[in-house]
Simulated assay, not measured.
Amino acid sequence: MSVSDVARLITPPNNPNEAPQQRDWSNIEAALATSLPEDYKEFINLFGTGKIDNFIWIFNPFSQNENVNLATKVHVQLTALFELQAYGEVLPYKLFPESNGVFPFGITENGDVLYWHTVGQPDAWTVLVNEAWSPDWEAFGMIMTEFLFKVLGRQIRPNAFPSAFPSATPNFIRGH
Rank of each mutant, 00 (worst) to 15 (best):
S4E: 15
A7F: 06
R8E: 15
L9K: 10
P13K: 09
N14Q: 12
N15F: 13
P16A: 11
Q22A: 10
D24L: 08
W25H: 07
S26N: 13
I28E: 13
I28Y: 05
A30S: 15
L32Q: 07
L32W: 06
A33I: 00
T34G: 01
S35W: 02
P37M: 11
D39S: 11
K41M: 11
K41R: 13
N45E: 15
L46F: 03
F47D: 03
T49H: 07
K51C: 12
N54R: 14
N54E: 15
I56N: 04
F59S: 08
P61G: 08
P61K: 08
S63M: 08
S63Q: 06
N65I: 03
N65H: 09
E66W: 03
E66I: 01
N67A: 11
L70M: 13
A71N: 08
V74G: 06
H75N: 10
H75G: 01
Q77F: 11
Q77V: 03
L78H: 04
L81W: 03
Q85M: 12
G88F: 12
L91V: 01
K94E: 12
L95V: 03
L95G: 03
L95I: 07
F96I: 00
N100G: 00
G101Y: 08
G101I: 06
V102K: 05
F103V: 04
F103K: 09
F103I: 06
N110V: 00
N110Y: 06
G111K: 06
D112S: 13
L114M: 12
Y115Q: 06
Y115M: 03
T118G: 01
G120Q: 10
G120K: 11
Q121W: 05
W125I: 06
T126S: 12
V127K: 10
L128K: 07
V129A: 06
S134K: 11
P135G: 15
P135Q: 14
D136G: 00
E138S: 08
I143S: 13
E146Q: 14
E146K: 13
K150D: 15
R154W: 00
Q155N: 11
I156K: 08
P158E: 13
N159R: 14
N159L: 09
F161V: 01
A164E: 15
I173T: 11
I173D: 09
G175L: 12
G175T: 04
